[in-house]
Computed example of a mutant assay.
Amino acid sequence: MRNKTVRVLLVEDDDGDAVLVEALLEEASAPFVLSRAETLAEAERMLSDAECVLLDLGLPDSQGLAGLRRLLAKPNAPAILVLTGLDDEREGIDAVAAGAEDYLIKGKVDGELLLRGVRYAVERRRAEDAQRKLREVELLASERSRLERGLLPRALLQNSDVGLEVRYQPGGQRMLLGGDFYDAVGMPDGTVHAIIGDVCGHGPDEAALGVCLRIAWRALVLAGEPAEKVLKTLDQVLVAERHGDGIFTTACMVSVAPDRRSVRYFLAGHPEPLLVTGEEIVELPRSKVGVPLGVLPDYTWAGVDVPLPAGWSLACYTDGLIEGRVPDDVDRLGVERLCEILARHLRNGPTWVDPVIAEVTELNGGPLDDDVAILLLKDGK
């Protein structure tokens, strides 16, 4: 900073004191750009262009620490050095306690001391800002980690013969966590229930709502509630807990029969699952998608029963996987192109989840805008 020009705003209504400050800076050969405001109101308008403020506490429109507090309350307030008179040193000490970087006594400061004071104030403010931003990032990371654990839990399939793979990839255009969630639970009778969902929007409110819905789903399933009632109850929970009337959630819920030869799935405005056997993508019977949760009161979602061939895999995913861009095309990727990509990778073996995500991301030209969650159930018999 020694050779860097610093923008200093002098807030002083006394012309003589203002001339003295300017002379002291010239005396120290200081690389400063000095501007002046004679009132606090004028200073507030000029604050965004300053890196350091030299503030007199006795102004026509402000007396004492009130002016200091007003400037400190401004967004991204710069460093502030308070100027006091010979008989007002106590006020300078109080100003530092209130948030000023330091105070200087008029008539007892030379150019070199003024120079050091301004440099110290600016560097201290920069260090404080850097520390504050670091704390904010750490708090955001901690909050994100807690929410992710709630959205993406450990599945309760310890004693089940159904295999499970899950993936989650956050969207690349923001640091905000989305509301994608999934879960899977094995029941005493051998049935395996799973859900994947996506709360519209991004941010901590949406993520917290996703956590709420996921926990409610697990509790309802463990309580043995039928699938139709589970979705209707989740709809009620969403309406009660959402932070805005327009918030909705898409979901795909599946129930694999104990003999692993059939599955019933429900769609609430969500992409249809993909049924895979060997190198083939099995076309599912056309079904009514159903409206998302939180859209129509008293709506009833209908399930679709599908036979499962030997060696089946059932992939449920959120729409971030199909909404990426495609080079030289105005349309999104879509389900049809996703199936084409999947079919190619199935020829290379059963480990296809990561390669498919990688190719979709590459086609998009970089990180996908939306979060991607994949839940893959596999026949373990």
Rank of each mutant, 00 (worst) to 15 (best):
V19G: 06
E22T: 01
L24M: 15
S29G: 11
R36T: 01
R36L: 00
T39A: 15
L40H: 04
A50E: 05
E51C: 08
G58F: 13
L59Q: 14
G64C: 11
L72I: 06
A73M: 12
P78D: 07
A79S: 09
D94S: 14
V96H: 02
V96E: 03
A98I: 04
G107K: 03
V109D: 00
G111W: 02
L113D: 13
Y120H: 14
R124E: 11
E136W: 08
V137T: 05
E143I: 00
R149I: 00
L156Y: 02
L156V: 04
D161Q: 00
Y168P: 08
P170S: 05
R174C: 00
M175G: 09
G178K: 09
V185C: 14
V185L: 14
P188D: 15
I195C: 15
I196D: 15
G203Q: 11
D205I: 00
A207P: 07
E225N: 11
A227P: 14
E228I: 00
K232C: 13
K232F: 06
V237Q: 02
E241N: 13
D245V: 10
M253L: 12
S255Q: 13
E272Y: 01
L284G: 03
P285V: 11
G294P: 04
G294C: 06
A302C: 12
W312R: 03
W312K: 03
E323G: 14
D329M: 05
R332L: 13
E336S: 14
A343H: 10
R344G: 12
R347E: 15
L368F: 12
D369Q: 04
D370Y: 12
K378T: 05
